[in-house]
Computed example of a mutant assay.
Amino acid sequence: MYDILTNFFRSKVSNKKIVFVIGSGRSGTHLLGRTIGNLEIFDAYIEDEKLFNKVTEVAVNPNRNLKDIKHILKLYEGVFNKANKTRILEKTHPNIWLVEPLKEHFNDAKFIGIKRDVYATVASMLNHSGVLSWYNRLPLNEVNPFLGINNENKDVFSKLPIESKCALRWKSHIERLNYLEEKYPHEVYVVKYEDFYHDYDFLMKNISAFLEVDVPIKSEKLNTDSIDKWKTFLTAEQINNIENVIIGNYNY
């Protein structure tokens, strides 16, 4: 459906190289975005107030239409055209659900996603009121990949413990990242959050190669406690609930 957008208007920022950071909330998208956005060659828009809320509202809505998409593309056009540099980093991580129209419109755009261990991600979700607020803001009885609701679990989703809901959200985003990376191997690259801590030099080298930058990439100082912090937060019951829904068992 998104190829219809080319009939509306074509991008006027074709002279700029755009990178979108995508992924699940609490998976390390901020760390990834800052790592790239801190390079002097980029104009960085990390959850920018002009973009984040409006784009997110469209991205999380499974009933979005072409009018919604067109509005978002025009919004990006307006912001990106004012950028002073030829490279742009944009971090609105729910754009994971809008990759196709963004790719269609911004022909040379690249997308870099990030995966994180399910237990660490869910533990962080449970500590973040903004993430949890979506369960009060969106319907819990209709299919929505942003929340991890599908035809198989939609009848039971609302009754699941909160950690199970978060685990399904994580699973849906992981499946989406896998799909995108396989379908668009030259435009989508997915990194592992844990590699920031366990394979740092190799990760920085791969990010540089994917983005085709010839300046060194370095992250901010890392907090090593964040890797295993979930082990002191999640209970045995919560871990069991997470593991059950990941394998599709909703009757535990």
Rank of each mutant, 00 (worst) to 15 (best):
N206Q: 15
W230I: 02
A167I: 06
E212L: 01
S164C: 04
E187N: 14
N178F: 07
Y179F: 14
A123Y: 01
R137N: 09
I174N: 15
N151D: 07
S133Q: 06
R169C: 10
N178A: 05
R169F: 10
E163C: 14
P145C: 03
Y184Q: 01
I162P: 00
P145F: 09
F146L: 06
A123P: 05
N151I: 00
E212I: 00
S124R: 04
N151P: 00
N206A: 15
D214N: 13
E175M: 11
K192C: 03
S219A: 14
E181A: 14
F202N: 06
L168G: 07
P216V: 05
E212C: 00
P145I: 03
S219C: 11
I149Y: 11
K171Q: 14
D225V: 11
M204N: 06
E152C: 01
L160K: 08
R137S: 10
I217K: 06
L147Y: 11
V213R: 06
I207D: 08
N141V: 12
H173E: 07
L126Q: 02
R176N: 07
N178V: 08
E194K: 08
A209F: 12
I227H: 09
V143K: 13
K221D: 04
L168E: 08
E142K: 10
L222F: 09
P161V: 01
L132T: 02
I207Q: 08
V213D: 05
N206E: 15
Y189V: 01
V213G: 04
D214I: 01
I207L: 09
K218G: 00
L180M: 08
F157Y: 15
S172G: 14
L140E: 09
L211V: 07
K154Q: 06
R176G: 01
W170T: 12
Y193M: 07
L160Q: 09
E182A: 05
N206M: 14
S172E: 14
Y197Q: 03
K159M: 06
T235M: 12
W170D: 12
T232M: 04
D228V: 05
D155W: 04
T235L: 13
A167K: 07
N151S: 04
H186R: 12
L222K: 07
K192G: 03
K154I: 03
L203S: 12
E142P: 00
G148V: 05
F202H: 03
D228Y: 15
E182V: 02
F157P: 00
L180W: 13
N144W: 09
L180G: 06
I207Y: 13
A167T: 08
W134S: 00
R137I: 06
N153M: 02
I207F: 13
V131H: 02
F210V: 01
V122K: 02
E142V: 04
Y135V: 04
E163P: 04
V122P: 10
G148D: 05
Y197L: 03
I149M: 10
S164L: 03
E181P: 05
K192S: 11
N150D: 14
N144K: 11
M125F: 10
N136I: 00
N153P: 03
S164E: 05
